[in-house]
Design a binder for these strands. Structure first.
Lengths: 345, 345
DNA sequence: GATTAGCAATCATATATGAAGAGTGCTAAA
DNA sequence: TTTAGCACTCTTCATATATGATTGCTAATC
């Protein structure tokens, strides 16, 4: 009989079915799953005693846990991980949802960044989880052109056009007057030097070069370099949608959990770190302790980098309980990823 | 004896002292205040029985409440209101706090809006309440100059300089190519028509005028007007600081309160409304039911419009429990208001 | 050998009970 | 007018008890 053949993962078919049923049931109900409740599952036509034996085995192997001696089982982190890697369906998305997402992403936008915002909101609406996003790192983008516009006697605007179509602008203030002629020179010089270069080249060495070699006034160059550098390093927009949605989840009936969550959400640096961490795959799933940060060990996080027309547009992530609807979230992310990739602007 | 003379507010001196003591004690401890605990107050050298009688009177007049028959008293909304209007000290700010605020506000900024952000963070840090802010309404600002810069064949940037020194810029995309010459014409035309006018003039009638009277292509004018209009009406930045601070307050040990609060904070339109509502005074205090919105009836909100160098810079507000440290918050707001007013840029 | 029925054991949850303590309201005395 | 004193009310905490869900294990059955 093939029925109970051990697979190379070490779990036979029936164990897989039991694990999958428990994970999905627990995701739905947030209640420990009993052996008896599983007997109504179409795939598991056994008595509760048999299922109890399988559950005991799965617990011994570390895929399940009990909350107390006489409770039903809940998935362990290892259980969730196995489910995500081996058992999960990633096309768990309805026609209505597909239509809703498509409509949202059709919205005409003037700046590509707005798409990130729309995608973030849409994901939060469909999955009912708190969603966050960060704009792309501009560091490595290439400068296509840089324009300086004189806005006042001591005020200049720098507008940087990059190869991805993203536009960054910033205002620079001076302690002395700048003329229209000076602006033209600055314009020429910067473009001469910077066209085709990555944004990160705008830094101290460039400042020194321009001052020494080009004999340009430090009072003019320094504020320009400093301000542009500030904008390209610091100014990554952070989006946040649906903080309140977390509060509808049963695990948030503990004040400690709720407080911990709000602390995380409030910590902008932490959120930025989360969205910037390792990207081995298209979609990255961090379950509980798999998160590097101590504060996140009770949560799961799913992130993906999204591109528009082949160009990196930043990272979108979801944060929720370990009992997360991985299937739904991953399906939605895959679909949005695909939709955005195809989209021109 | 003058001691117990009734004032025109209908409360004699001793009642005022009792009310003040109860409000302040309750703000400090979040526990109903007993007659006995007040006997240790320097200002109230009476037995607990006497104070009990005064408390019973104040309750009859609606300034105090009980949480149950044998509990101490807590202030009613009327009690808080009386305290804010008649009893509160608005110089409740330490030298350390003054120094801290001054240092923060000294920070050099390139754009005035950054000051709003700094002020918001500082207020939240000092008061330990959740603080929100919205940038100024640009509607009524006067256009000093408007510059159009061609960024690409079908992409224009409009930069609007206003009389307050605020700069607004936005990108406009077209379905057809725009030449450098056209840009110059647009520049000339818009400045001719708009210099000295309020921003809100940029709307449909202007669009129609330019198209009909000036015989300008609808394909060029329409996107420009639409996009600028969008930016000046919609694009008021919302700042939020210290959501998590609310969770340190004892009233947030109820999940219902916590959830309600996060819902409010998440509702950006509501927050904007709060900050935009009536401004009779320099600093506006809304206690519980005094708030127009139903969701806010368990909270108190304190807002003020801040100006920099005489120019309206938006509104900053605090949201917290009715048991708010009105004295501290109002003192800090007054000081920051004063500091900002003096500041040049 | 795999499956299942049956049952004792375990633990969470809900409810009831009672004691302790904090605080008030009222009355009568100072 | 103020205060001492005391009965009364209500919360809070600890303890006890009943109920029910679920498991693990054993022995019987397929």
């Amino acid at each position: 009989m093939l029925k109970n053949k051990k697979t190379n993962e070490g779990l036979d078919d029936r164990k897989k079915k039991v694990l999958q049923a428990i994970v999905e049931e627990y995701i739905n109900t947030a209640e420990p799953v009993s052996s008896n409740s599983l007997t109504s599952n179409e795939e598991l036509k056994y008595s509760s005693a048999t299922i109890r034996n399988e559950m005991a085995n799965l617990e011994k192997s570390g895929y399940l846990e009990k909350t107390h001696t006489s409770s039903g089982r809940i998935p362990s982190e290892k259980g969730y991980r196995y489910y995500v890697d081996e058992l999960l369906k990633d096309d768990n998305i309805s026609l209505e949802e597909i239509k809703y997402i498509s409509d949202k992403l059709e919205t005409k936008v003037n700046e590509i960044e707005d798409l990130t915002k729309i995608a973030t909101t849409t994901i939060s609406e469909i999955t009912h989880y708190t969603t966050l996003a960060i704009g792309p790192s501009t560091q490595s983008l290439l400068i296509e052109e840089i324009k300086f516009v004189l806005l006042g006697p001591r005020m200049l605007m720098a507008i940087i056009l990059t190869n991805t179509g993203m536009v960054k602008e910033t205002i620079i203030k001076f302690d002395e007057d700048i003329t229209e002629k000076q602006t033209e020179t600055i314009n020429y010089m910067f473009n001469q030097k910077l066209k085709g270069q990555p944004l990160e080249i705008i830094d101290v060495p460039l400042e020194e070069y321009l001052i020494k070699e080009m004999k340009y006034s430090v009072k003019v160059i320094k504020p320009i370099i400093e301000q542009i550098k500030k904008v390209i390093t610091e100014d990554r927009k952070l989006y946040l949608e649906g903080t309140n949605k977390a509060f509808d989840l049963p695990e948030f009936n503990s004040l400690a959990v709720a407080k911990n969550f709000v602390n995380i959400i409030d910590e902008k640096d932490l959120m930025t770190d989360i969205l910037n961490s390792g990207f081995a795959k298209d979609i990255n799933v961090y379950i509980g302790d798999e998160n590097e940060k101590e504060e996140l060990k009770d949560f799961s996080i799913i992130t993906f980098k999204h591109k528009v027309g082949g160009k990196d547009m930043g990272t979108i992530g979801i944060i929720g309980p370990k009992r997360m609807d991985y299937s739904k979230v991953i399906s939605v992310m895959k679909y949005i990823n695909k939709k955005l990739k195809d989209k021109g602007i």
